[in-house]
Design a protein around this nucleic acid. Structure first.
Length: 182
DNA sequence: ATTCGGATAAGG
DNA sequence: CTTATCCGAATT
């Protein structure tokens, strides 16, 4: 999970909007039943099996675009879902895409973040180094909180959701209604 | 607290 | 073909 932690505070820029990442969630490959890669490669998840520092975007529930950063070495199929962030540049453009929501909600939630940055499945597989989508890692965060993953029905209790403490752009924790009760 | 939307993939 | 899913908005 060191890769996930290192992405907290990173900046992602695309299409006129820059976001500072405040919340992430880690997904493994084989052996992680909640991961799209957990049961072998599919056309959708193929990029997770490729080299790191590549964007993996998937369409959730037929309408939301969620962005991940592929992190493992080639063949490992690990990725980090960008769950939330703070828009630090391009507010007007982001609000145009997201509607009249408060600034703190512009990229709160994985689908909102994807929409604010105008990422779609067409961007899946693009490199984050020198491509149209730029990822700038920052100094590792001084502190980070961890907790169970959100929205997954299997293996939700692996503490693989990480966020920066005291950030108002972090989404409120809400356990998946289908996850087994604790 | 519940419903819906509607791509992708797995199971029957 | 049927069911489930890394979600969010709009409803009750």
């Amino acid at each position: 999970m060191a890769e996930a932690r290192a992405l907290l505070g990173a900046r992602v820029t695309h299409a006129g909007v820059t976001v500072r990442v405040t919340e992430v969630e880690a997904y493994g490959g084989a052996g992680d039943p909640a991961s799209h890669a957990g049961r072998g490669p599919t056309p959708r998840s193929a990029v997770m099996f490729g080299p790191p520092d590549v964007l993996y975007v998937y369409l959730s529930y037929g309408m939301h675009h969620c962005a991940n950063v592929v992190v493992g070495p080639e063949g490992d199929a690990a990725a980090v879902l960008l769950r939330a962030g703070e828009v630090i540049d391009g507010h007007a453009i982001a609000r145009q895409r997201r509607g009249p929501v408060p600034d703190v909600a512009l990229a709160r939630g994985p689908a909102c973040l994807g929409q604010a940055l105008a990422l779609t499945v067409a961007d899946s597989g693009t490199s984050l180094r020198g491509g149209p989508v730029a990822l700038r890692r920052s100094h590792p965060p001084a502190s980070a909180r961890t907790g169970p993953r959100v929205g997954v029905s299997k293996a939700a209790d692996r503490p693989w959701r990480l966020w920066l403490p005291g950030e108002s752009t972090v989404s409120a924790y809400r356990r998946s209604p289908r996850a087994p009760a604790r």
